[in-house]
Write a protein that binds this DNA or RNA. Structure first.
Lengths: 321, 321
DNA sequence: CAAGGTGCCAGACATTTGTTTCATTGACGC
DNA sequence: GCGTCAATGAAACAAATGTCTGGCACCTTG
């Protein structure tokens, strides 16, 4: 039977995980059996299974929608004049867990929108990172991914928030980064960087995106400050200047207008009218603290699609009145 | 819009299952919590989860292929001149379990082939039934499903083997049946039925299918006889006449030629050259007892795609030599 | 070559999940 | 009304899964 296959095909960790996953989910074997079959410890089987789910090697889909959420989605679509919306169940107020949960729903939603030959503009943040991490691997051709914001420069931030690279790898796509930090030292250095030929080239590529997937930063969300890009002083002064959240790197007020504050002069991102040139603009976001900002952005018509959770959807619909 | 909010939205059993599934798989809640939240017993939560997996409300995908199986698939593709093939892991020799396992792999394979506006011709048997039962629900438009064989007439057989109806419901598609039993009483009654206007109409529809999904019946497979369509005498005499299996209802010999036997005169199905007019012909089958028949059919070039398991794939490749 | 680290297995343990049994409920048919 | 039957929850139990510890082998690094 299974003769000792040669050896060195592909990277082992992943192949092992795949094998374990197939034995477990497709063949319905017990972890103990699998461990015995593959000659490894049961603990490892458990780790590999967890890892496989984390990585999106294994994905679980629920094909039937929950009626009440379909209704909420329809209401959102109508009230904010969207192309479509998706509402998922939520159970926790913890923003990190929430991000994971929305990510799962958004996965299917986004995967359906991806077509061959497409350029995808991508934002930033834990939610998107999570989304991309658990996303199905899809075989595409001619797809490219462009970051809509400048780059993060700290390794730790990149690991937590940078999603483009991971998305590109899931899709087997090319990936482009705006060659400038997301927050520049000063307005003048921003202008210098933005004026570079290479920068413009990539910026134009971003403008030509067919699909944008973005998130929104609530103001007191940890994300922005965790990234260490904005210090406390700036944060609180932006706050006082009427900021309700952060959209594509820029601090916005309750009308979704970019507030007049020095920090916004230093941000590198595709925003404003340029952003609107992307025909399909999907927001993936939820959470108590982001409702106001999400509402503002929706109200202003910046988006064509929304993926959020029950609680946020209900809050948004209430605000509308 | 939101008209019947209050109570009667959708059928409850399914909605409950969906809700439980989402809580469990997306939100990662414990069964105990879910039971408490929804005010039902934990036992029911378990039953609903099982049911959801059975029905394909919940589907689990493994997105990364197993390298050794990719190799086997490539070998199959090349040796039998196929468009593509898929090989899944197998762990059991039990044909029923095997059917379940292949069905899981075939699901993804077949779903990828389905396009809007397509007509799908479908065969018969436990494997296909299983395939369809666990298949993802896909939203399609303009798809129709046509049975490639005459109809089953006993309720119990229908429940076990008839796949077209279920497929159509998963796809939201139209479904057409050949208006004749799969096995007629006599050759003459077959001719009479086949000559009906309505029959020809649907037969032509079947001929115009873009995709056929079929299985193969091993000779001593329980399926054929379970259906109670062929009695023991006929079975053993067909056996003696050199039958190695059953393809689209017809008994075939080791060259995949339809054997000269009275039973074959009474079968209603789309076969022979007519079958070859369907451009994409996928076989989903595996099992020790079917190897010879599968080999014959492949050798004769009746198929363009195969989904099978490791053991069968290896056996097929050995035979080729 | 040794210190420190990592990854793994083995096995003990806690938790979760699955199964069985039994009593209750409520719908249905007569 | 009144039995019958299926569906369900409760509780007890069995099995599986997940977590943790210690120890060993193997690496890296100085």
């Amino acid at each position: 039977m299974s003769n000792e296959q040669s050896e060195n095909r592909g990277d082992w960790p992943e192949q092992l995980a795949v094998r374990v996953a197939r034995c477990y989910y497709e063949l319905g074997m017990r972890q103990q059996e699998i461990a015995a079959l593959l000659g490894i410890g049961r603990a490892r089987v458990i780790r590999l299974l967890a890892e496989a789910r984390e990585n999106g090697i294994v994905t679980i889909h629920i094909n039937s929608p929950l009626l009440e959420n379909v209704e909420l989605a329809e209401q959102l679509t109508e009230r904010f004049n969207l192309l479509s919306a998706e509402v998922c169940l939520s159970h926790t107020a913890d923003e990190i867990q929430l991000a994971e949960q929305i990510a799962i729903s958004a996965n299917q939603y986004v995967v359906r929108l991806i077509k061959n030959g497409m350029t995808i503009g991508l934002g930033w943040g834990v939610t998107l990172k999570e989304l991309v991490r658990r996303m199905d691997r899809v075989n595409t051709t001619g797809v490219s991914v462009v970051s809509l914001l400048g780059s993060l420069t700290q390794r730790s931030s990149i690991d937590r928030f940078e999603a483009s690279t991971a998305l590109a790898s899931k899709l087997g796509a090319e990936c482009f980064y705006l060659p400038a930090p997301i927050v520049c030292d000063s307005q003048s250095s921003r202008e210098l960087l933005v004026d570079q030929h290479l920068f413009k080239q990539i910026y134009n590529r971003a403008l030509a995106a067919d699909l944008a997937v973005v998130s929104i930063g609530g103001l007191n969300s940890a994300t922005i400050r965790q990234a260490g890009l904005v210090d406390e002083d700036e944060y609180s002064s932006a706050n006082q200047a009427g900021a309700v959240g952060n959209f594509l790197g820029l601090y916005i007020d309750k009308n979704a207008d970019v507030i007049d504050h020095p920090i916004n002069q230093r941000i590198v991102s595709v925003s404003g009218d340029d952003f609107l040139r992307i025909p399909r603009r999907v927001m993936v976001s939820a959470g108590e603290s982001k409702v106001e900002a999400i509402f503002a952005v929706l109200q202003k018509g910046l988006l064509t699609d929304v993926v959020t959770d029950q609680a946020t959807a209900q809050a948004l619909l209430k605000l509308k009145k």
